[in-house]
C-alpha cells in the first residue's frame, strides 16, 4: 500500500467543524484498511492538537495521529471550501493529515511523510493545491514521493 493514494485527495470538501473533519479522516483511514477503530484515531488527532496546534498560518493545518490504531503510514489531503475554526484564533482550509503507525514503523514511509511535510513549506506547492481544478494535479505532484 502506498503512502499517497489518489483516492485520499479531496478537493472542495465542506466541513464546518474540526470534529467533522477528524471524523471524516478517521473514516477514510479505516475504510481503506489503513487503520482501525476510527474513534481512537479521532482521539489521536485531538491528543496531538492538545500538545500544540497543528495550524501553521496561511490557512494550512497538518493534523496528525500517531498510535497503534494506524496500520499504514498515510497522507490525506483535503481542500475545504471554507475556513474551519481550528483554535480560538486560527483557521484552516488546506488540510494535510499525516497518519503514522505507532509501532513497526517502516523508515521509508516515515521518510515520505517527512518529505510531504517539507513540501508544504514550499509556496509553489501550496499555490498548486489552492488552484488545482481537481485532485489529479495534486496527486501528480505528491505521488512522486511514493517512490523515494
Amino acid at each position: 500500500m502506498k503512502v499517497i493514494d489518489r483516492d485520499l485527495i479531496f478537493v472542495d470538501t465542506d466541513f464546518k467543524t474540526q470534529r467533522e473533519l477528524f471524523e471524516f479522516l478517521a473514516k477514510q483511514v479505516s475504510e481503506s484498511k489503513r487503520g482501525e477503530n476510527p474513534e481512537k484515531i479521532v482521539e489521536g488527532f485531538y491528543e496531538r492538537e492538545a500538545e500544540f496546534s497543528t495550524a501553521m498560518g496561511n490557512d494550512i493545518a497538518i493534523p496528525h495521529c500517531r498510535n497503534e490504531h494506524i496500520l499504514q503510514a498515510t497522507v490525506i489531503v483535503a481542500r475545504n471550501k471554507t475556513q474551519i475554526e481550528w483554535t480560538d484564533d486560527e483557521r484552516a482550509k488546506l488540510i494535510f493529515a499525516l497518519l503514522v503507525p505507532g509501532s513497526n514503523e517502516n523508515q521509508m514511509h516515515i521518510r515520505i511523510l517527512a518529505q510531504v511535510a517539507q513540501l508544504i513549506m514550499e509556496e509553489d506547492f501550496i499555490n498548486l493545491v489552492n488552484e488545482a481544478k481537481d485532485g489529479e494535479k495534486i496527486y501528480e505532484r505528491l505521488s512522486v514521493l511514493n517512490n523515494l
Binding site: 497543528t54 496528525h64 511523510l113 514550499e122
Partner: peptide
C-alpha cells in the same frame, strides 16, 4: 517536535529557506 514526523522537518526547511 513530539511526534518527530512533521514539524521537525518543516522547521528545518523553514529555517534553511
Amino acid at each position: 517536535c513530539p511526534t518527530g514526523v512533521a514539524h521537525t522537518y518543516m522547521a528545518k526547511k523553514a529555517l534553511e529557506q
